Amino acid sequence: MNGGPNQPRSPLARFQSSQVNVDEQKRNGWNRHGILVVSHDDNRLSWPERELVKQLGDRLYGQNRRKGMCHA
């Protein structure tokens, strides 16, 4: 016995990709469903854009609880 839980077995498992392209998933979410997933420290954003993302997140979901984060 290996001591851990058994992995579920499915005949479809061989079709499941082991690599997930996160940016592609984010793009699909935006294009298909209008859902935007963005990190407030994404280097592609300017400082005002990152600040806006942070403010939106705080407003919709509450203050970010992780202390000591650099918002530069």
Rank of each mutant, 00 (worst) to 15 (best):
M69W: 06
R66D: 10
Q16L: 05
S46R: 01
N21K: 06
N6T: 12
D41G: 04
K54C: 03
Q63A: 15
P11Q: 09
N2T: 13
V22W: 00
R59G: 01
Q25M: 13
N21G: 04
Q16R: 11
R44C: 10
L12K: 08
D42Q: 09
L36P: 01
A72S: 08
D42G: 03
D23K: 01
G3N: 13
G3P: 02
G62S: 07
R44A: 11
D41C: 06
Q63Y: 14
R27Y: 01
G3W: 00
H33V: 03
R14Q: 02
L36T: 05
V37L: 13
G3Y: 06
L36H: 13
N31K: 14
P5G: 06
S39W: 04
Q25D: 14
C70M: 14
R9E: 03
R32M: 13
S10Q: 03
H40V: 06
R44S: 07
S17Q: 11
D41A: 01
H33S: 10
L56F: 09
H71D: 07
L56V: 08
R65L: 15
S46L: 02
K26H: 08
C70Q: 10
S10C: 04
L52E: 12
Q7P: 01
R9F: 08
K67F: 07
R59T: 02
N28H: 03
V22K: 02
W47H: 12
L60H: 06
Q7E: 10
S39T: 12
F15P: 00
P5E: 12
E24H: 08
M1K: 08
D42S: 01
P48R: 00
P11E: 10
S17P: 00
L12H: 04
N31T: 01
N31I: 02
V37M: 11
H71K: 11
G4M: 05
V37C: 09
E49R: 05
D23R: 06
A72H: 11
P8F: 08
Q19A: 12
R65K: 15
R27D: 04
L60E: 09
Q7V: 07
L45E: 00
R14K: 08
L45I: 01
